[in-house]
Design a protein around this nucleic acid. Sequence first.
DNA 1: GCCGTTTTCGGCCCGACTGTTTTCAGTCG
Length: 583
Amino acid sequence: MDNRALIRAFRLAASLLELHDENPFKIRAYEGTAAALERLEFPVAEVERTGLPDRTGLSKTAAARVAEMLDTGTFEELTRLLSITPPGVVEMLNIKGIGPKKIRMLWRELGVESSDALRAAAERDEVSKLKGFGKKTQDAILQALEFSDQSRGKLLYPQAEELAKDLVVRLQEALFTESVAVAGEVRRRLEVVENVVLVAATAQPEKAHKLLNSLDGLTADPLRSGPFAWRGTATTSGVKVEVLLVAKDDFTNQLFLLTGAEAHLSEIFVPQAAHGQPATLRQLLKKERFYQETAIYEKAGLQYVEPELREGLGELALAKEHKLPKLLEDADLRGSVHNHSNYSDGAHTLRQMAEFLRDEGYEYLGICDHSQAAHYANGLSPERVHQQQHEIDELNKELAPFRIFKGIESDILGDGALDYQPTVLASFDFVVASVHSNLKMDEARATTRLLRAIENPYCTMLGHPTGRLLLRREGYPIDYKAVIDACAQHEVVIEINANPWRLDLDWRWVRYALDQGVKLSINPDAHHTTGYADMRYGVFMGRKGGLTKEMTFNAMSREEVAAYFAQRKAKIKPAEEFKTTLF
DNA sequence: GCCGTTTTCGGCCCGACTGTTTTCAGTCG
C-alpha cells in the first residue's frame, strides 16, 4: 500500500464523519493525519511499525490507525463509517461542488442514495427546493454529474501507459515474441485515453485470448471480439482495451494503421494521384507491405512523422515540404523551474529538492513556493520569502555551479493583480503567475484577469493557464488567442504544467504559441522529489504541439537562464511609475 | 481526535467566494 492510498483512506474517513455530523475537531484530526502523510517523503509501508510515531510525527493513535491500514487494508473507524453509509452515498462524495453536508441533506431529506437518484431528483426540480439549495446549485449538480459521466471509461495518460506496458510484457511472455507493441492513443501520447490498443504478431491468436480472458483486471467483451481481435475493458476504470492479433508479416502495417488518427491516415497528400495510385497513407498501406514505419513515409515521399504528431492536424503538409521540426527530447531539458519546497506545501526541503535535481544531472532549480494569498497551501509571508531567499543564497554558495533560482508562484488575485507588493516581487529572480481561486469566472472575466497579470512587468511566466484538472474539473474558459498574443507582446513564457492531471497549456495551442514566438517551459510543479519525473509528460505534450529545443525555456543552460532573468528584470521600470495603474 | 498542560479537560479554529440567505453555511484550493 502506498502513501496515496493511506491519504485517500483518511480523507474519506474525514468526509464520512462530516457526512454523519460528527465532532468537527475529530474531522479536523483525520484531515490532519492525511495532511501529515502527504508531507512525508518516504513510503510509510516500509517503516518499522513501532517506529511509526517517531518517523511520521503522528500521534500514537493515528499511527496505530495507519498500521492497521497497512496490515488489513482498512481501519476500524473507517469500516464502521462505511457500514452505516450506502455505497452510492459514498460515491456522491466525489461530485464536485457539493460536499458532505449537502449530501447529508439530499440523503436525509430526499432519500437520495446514489448519483443516478440525485440526477433524477434534480431533473424533477426537487433539489432546488431544499433549504440551502437553489436553482444554481441544482444546475451545478447536474453539470458535475454530466462531467463525471463523460470521464467514465477514460484514463489519464500515465495510468493508460502503465496498463498498456503491463499487457505488452504479459503478451510477450505468453506468445514467446518480442513483436507486441502499443498503438493508438497511448502511442500518440494523448493526455486522456479512451482506448488502449495493442498489436501482437502471433500465429497462435487463441493463446492470446486465453491469457487475456484469464487476467484479473480485464473484462472480455465477446460480442466485439473475433478470432484475431480481443476486445474488452479494464474492469475498474472501464477504459476500452483492444488487442489485435496479426500475422508476423503484417505487424508493421497494422501497427501503423492502429497508431495514426483517422485524419492522419485518410488525408489526401497526393492531390493529383493517377488512377489506382495511393493518395492517402491508408491507400498506400493497402497496396504494399512494410517492415519499418520509416519506409512507409519514405515511400510516400514524406518526412518521417513522429507518432505524437499523427493527429491529422496539418503535419502531412509539413512532412511533404520536409519542414517538420526536430521535436524536443527529455535529454534537452537542463533544469526545472516551477517546483515547491516545504516552505509552502511541498514535501522536501530546499536542499533535498536541489540535491536531487543536481544528482539527476540537471543544472538548475527554480523554486516557486505559493504566495501569501494561498493560505491553504501555507503561502509565504514577505518575512518568510526573505528567510527562504537567504537560505537559497547560502545553498547556492555550497552547491555551485548548480544554481537555485529564487521564484514564487504568485497567485493571480480576482482582479488580475499579482500577490505581494512590488518591493517583494522585485526580490525574486522570476515570477510564475497562476490562478488558484475563484475558478468559476466566465470567459471574458477570466481572460481579462489573465491579461492583467501578463501585463504586470514582474510576471515572467504564466502558470497552468486554465486551471483544469483532467477528468476531474473543467478549467475556466479563456480566450486562448488573446492570452497567447499578450504573452508574445509582453515576453511572458507560458508553462506546460507537466502534472498529468493538468498538462496545461493544452498541446493543441502549442503551435499557435510557437508561431507567435512565445517560449514554453516544461514545468513539473513538483511538490516532492519524485514529481520531477512528470517532466516527461510535459515533453510529450510539447512534442504533440511541435515544440523544439530552441523554443523550450528550460532547455536553456544555467547561464542563459540567469542572463534572461537578469535582462528581463532590468527592463522593469521603478515601481512608482506603474504603481498607480497596476496596484 | 489531539495537544498540552493550570495533569484531566478545555481549546483547538484558513479566507475567499458563492449562493443562499436577511446574516450565514458550505465548498474549495
